[in-house]
Design a binder for these strands. Structure first.
Lengths: 347, 347
DNA sequence: TTGAAAGCGATACCAT
DNA sequence: ATGGTATCGCTTTCAA
């Protein structure tokens, strides 16, 4: 039996010794390129297989100056939004011949941890970086965009040097507004998220407000504070105002807690009150809940983000791009079905 | 201005040149260990900062033979179950001074991709491996457990050499059974998942069946086929049997589609039919739905998995451990509230 | 305190 | 076709 170096991973040198060739030969056989006799090749591959050889990505990356790896920075693995986006990115990256490593922050020390996560990815010398986090400010990303192609996915990024791919929040808000208006609502409440809490949620809720006003709808704006209870606590005041017939929420999970609060208050949805959300992703899309919402095109966001990244690798001087993708209105049961279209009288 | 090597990342040699010292000095300053004058130290750190130096994890890992990195293999980033687990793992790993890289399969080529993902992690020379996937068979994992400490998280792993941390499925099933029995159900349907489709879901549903039978409850077993429509299609047959008063589902999302189907059939829950799920994770936990389910202790699973991994690093000869953690019954509104306890008659 | 030099594991160029 | 050797960026003796 050959000498087992306990549990250390075998190197190409181990294989070379075992197969009676030089390590150059092993490298060529493993890479499948360069001149090598068929006989040696298969012997080497055999030995590698038998030894359970797994290449050392560090050594390879170091000399080859290529890692074939894309880095994804995800804010919070718990949220289905990021889960979907992550999966979409992953799928496309593989198709492009890249592997993906993901690093994420951790809830409590969010910002500091995200900076660490960014460092981790950079230190791994990823060949492209996708940032999926509404948290990390452009300031932290910008210094590295010259060094590694970077795309922000899932949120618009106004920074002139940083590319981004995201759902068109204004358009989405407008679609929801149009839906409510076509249903005849004349006085609507919007739960507005302050810009400081979330840039994207601010953008979409602000667009709801201005969209409603442009359509001449009375608009009641309730500014949300931080914390999960804020939306719930905002509901009673809205119920005081008997003219309000619809509430627009910044996100589906907020919408769900609003619906819950309405039910506790004995308010029927959609008979007494209509409610809309935003995202249309994950388990909450079940017809059991029937949320009226705007579905973000996350598969496409992920795909386009990777494509953009790969283009960027080819041509580093490409001008910055910001790609806004249209979401799709999902008309559920939290808004009433549209009234039957007027038709010519039968008699 | 100093010569800018365009967009290439600076190395310690660049820093050394700029600071007028040797690269050894830079290494010591950056590591904060070894003798070095305070004066040189701060100058070096300054230069590093100014150049935007990010260490090369490959070079460092190669020479130091340590990566301070744990690898997590996740099956499907889309499912909240994995998202939660991932987050829990991440949090604990950071506390332990490790960073985490994640690799995941991709839906369509599931198994092949998971093998690739495993190779990716191994090639990165992670110091520990957490496998969160009901898919990847032990056969694929076993060859490497000698080389790198490995824990399977989220599913029991019977393999004698592979450690695992998971929710006690039998106990969870039993808790749900007890709940139904205490509510007075005498004939109950179980949607059984075949072992070939999912080992964990088979374990829990099989335990439901045997638990019910042990308690003397009539049990109707419906074996699920593959595909998302299977649970829905199973419902009508169950409604034929007017004696059935409860349906036990293998998972919350299955439960939700069953509830939806029941509603379409005009069956009221819980008045006409009780329903239970399993998982208690993610957006579906909203009180709006009020699912009666068993909540898996995923935070603890993640924490214990990392702890076990780190213990394993210390003592590679540790005997294999299988840690089963108790879940918690969540009594929702898809089962009726328990009847008032019998009390002494008033008159 | 500081610098020179030897590797870590793999690739690629160069002779042979 | 094959093997020797320089090299990637960094840590770590070992001298000075």
């Amino acid at each position: 039996m050959t000498e087992d170096k306990a549990n250390k991973a075998p190197t190409i040198i181990d294989i070379a010794r075992e197969a009676g060739v030089s390590k150059s030969a092993v490298s060529r056989a493993l890479l499948g390129q360069g001149r090598i006799s068929e006989e040696a090749r298969s012997r080497i591959l055999d030995v590698a297989q038998r030894l359970g050889y797994v290449k050392n990505a560090m050594a390879q990356g170091l000399v080859a100056q290529r890692t074939h790896t894309l880095g994804v920075l995800v804010r919070d693995a718990v949220r289905p939004f990021y889960g979907h986006l992550h999966a979409a990115l992953q799928g496309r990256a593989i198709e492009g011949g890249y592997r993906v490593v993901t690093a994420t922050g951790v809830r409590d020390f969010a910002l500091a941890e995200e900076r660490r996560a960014l460092q981790t990815l950079l230190s791994l010398r990823v060949e492209g970086l996708v940032v999926c986090s509404g948290l990390l400010p452009a300031r932290d990303i910008a210094p590295f965009v010259e060094r590694v192609p970077t795309v922000v996915a899932g949120r618009p990024e106004p920074h002139p040097a940083i590319n981004s791919v995201y759902c068109d929040e204004e358009d989405g808000a407008q679609q929801l507004v149009d839906h409510l208006v076509s249903l005849g609502h004349r006085r609507v409440a919007v739960l507005l998220v302050p810009e400081a809490l979330s840039i994207t949620q601010y953008a979409r809720t602000a667009a709801m407000v201005s969209g409603l006003r442009e359509r001449g709808v009375d608009t009641v704006v309730t500014e949300l504070t931080d914390g999960p209870e804020a939306p719930v606590e905002a509901v009673p005041a809205l119920l005081e105002d008997r003219e309000i017939t619809a509430i627009m929420c910044p996100q589906d999970d907020v919408m769900v807690s609003v619906l819950e609060r309405l039910r506790r208050a004995g308010v029927r949805v959609p008979d007494d009150m209509s409610v809309t959300g935003f995202d249309g992703i994950g388990p909450l899309t079940t017809p059991l809940l029937g949320l009226t919402t705007l579905r973000q095109p996350l598969d496409e966001v992920g795909r386009r983000a990777i494509d953009l990244l790969l283009e960027l690798r080819e041509d580093r001087s490409m001008p910055t791009r910001h790609i806004a993708l249209r979401g799709a209105l999902v008309a559920g049961t939290t808004t009433p079905p549209p009234p039957p279209p007027p038709h010519p009288a039968r008699r």
